[in-house]
Design a protein around this nucleic acid. Sequence first.
DNA 1: TTAGTATGTTAGACGAGCATAACAATATTA
DNA 2: TAATATTGTTATGCTCGTCTAACATACTAA
Lengths: 155, 155
Amino acid sequence: MDEKIMKDIKLSSSMEDYLEAIAVLKKENGVARVKDIGNLLNVKNPSVNSALNFLADAGLVVHERYGYADLTEDGMAVANNVIERHNILTRFFTEILGLDRQKAEEDACKIEHFLGDETFNRLTIFMQYAESCREGKTPEWLDGFYRFIQMKEKV
Amino acid sequence: MDEKIMKDIKLSSSMEDYLEAIAVLKKENGVARVKDIGNLLNVKNPSVNSALNFLADAGLVVHERYGYADLTEDGMAVANNVIERHNILTRFFTEILGLDRQKAEEDACKIEHFLGDETFNRLTIFMQYAESCREGKTPEWLDGFYRFIQMKEKV
DNA sequence: TTAGTATGTTAGACGAGCATAACAATATTA
DNA sequence: TAATATTGTTATGCTCGTCTAACATACTAA
């Protein structure tokens, strides 16, 4: 019951970003430092610091003074959820809409916090469907869309 | 040149919401009152008031004391842009992902401010493509997706 | 092993966007 | 048209997330 209450904390999009950043940095560098989190999120050290304090109080992060930031199990769960959303969105933007990776990542970052669960689930299933359609090659309907884009953008 | 500067003001998502609300209310009621804007956006009157002051200073809204709020030409342009984004997103969520109208509108509201132009354009073209596929009936690929959802959600 | 640099922390300020409470104007209706 | 109810406005304060400046610690290399 108490754990549920923990997990039901509604995090702001900023706080989700910090958790995500820590997870990403740990995957990349094995470790997450204040400075690198700041660079990733384009904020200064003191902002990172107060975020880490908040997240530590919420039981999502462990942060020893002058040391690395790490995720608790709960924090990892939240971070993974955000990353999953991020990835689905990025895939939709690149694999379906045909956007370049950078723009896709940018937009995924911006909206990943705001999609409702149901919408996210449907989008996930949509990507699974698109995957199931592709047997070695781009399915006809998607290829049709790409031709349609060509046409639209040539005009 | 000066007008361009006007239009290049980067509005916060809140301010976009206020402009959108005014446009919606004008379409619905012919007129936009402080109270109705507040109800639509779930904020109190003083919040509406300060937003209107800000938007009036920015040349996007006209608001006589104790009177109705109205959009300037620039304000209308912004509002229409937001509404267009909103509608495309709503259509994607309902017509493609098959979500119910309410959830679709909710999520559209939340993310309409954050989609990049390019992403939005592609999504627009995608909806045009989906439309072009449907000659009286749901196109096979979309129907396939709906069967795929059934399958996934039955399990 | 100490001097200098890089990184982390604290204190304090600020703007955006919201709220409540008190007040002012307008609308309604008896 | 006076009394009351509704709506709009002002003053003020709060929280969140950011910043800068000053200070503390840790790292690095001479």
